[in-house]
Amino acid sequence: MDDTDRRILRHWLAEPALPRAELAERAGVTVATLWRRIERLRETGVILAETTVIDWRALGYELEVSLRFTLDKTDPRAFDEFIGAAREVPEVIGIETFLGRVDVRLNVIARDMGHWTEVYRERILPLPHIAEVDALMLISTIKDEGGLPL
């Protein structure tokens, strides 16, 4: 990866919807060169995917709660079974595992407090192998960037 690749990525991260011709111009390369470099970045695993980001608030979800779980690890399948069951909960928008006191974090969305209560009681608490759970309700997001200092 060279300075040209970094320039392409920097401009692309800053404006993901930028037409390829304009991205090529800003990065100082031809469109053909841009396509070749993007393809090489994909092949080498630098670019993993292009995604669509949906604003779940625009769809009527007003709450986001981060749940931190400590699992009962006496069963060697605890992680796999917990994560498998959590994947089936439609309101779970993120699953992360950790090394330390917290084993797993789920990010969960809900339309309102009534919906949150329903999701928590009927879909979250029945998940297998929970030893301890801690909830943090999101108040505001100060910084949310996927960019790197390229």
Rank of each mutant, 00 (worst) to 15 (best):
E88H: 07
P90V: 11
P90F: 07
E122W: 06
A21I: 11
V65Q: 01
P128K: 13
K143H: 03
V29A: 10
L13K: 15
D72F: 06
V65F: 00
R87D: 02
K143E: 00
F79Q: 01
G28K: 13
A32E: 05
E145L: 12
M137H: 00
V65P: 03
I124G: 05
L99G: 06
A78E: 12
R42A: 07
E96G: 03
D80P: 06
L125G: 05
G45T: 02
E22F: 01
H11W: 10
R26K: 14
P76C: 11
H129Q: 13
D75N: 13
W12D: 05
E22D: 09
A21D: 11
M1W: 03
P128G: 11
T74D: 11
A24D: 01
D3R: 12
P19W: 04
R40V: 12
G45Q: 09
H115D: 15
T51Q: 04
I8S: 03
K73F: 02
L13N: 15
E64F: 00
T30F: 12
V102H: 01
N107H: 13
G147D: 14
L23A: 02
E118M: 09
G147L: 14
L34C: 01
L106N: 04
D2H: 09
L125H: 05
E25K: 09
A27S: 13
N107K: 08
D112V: 07
R77S: 04
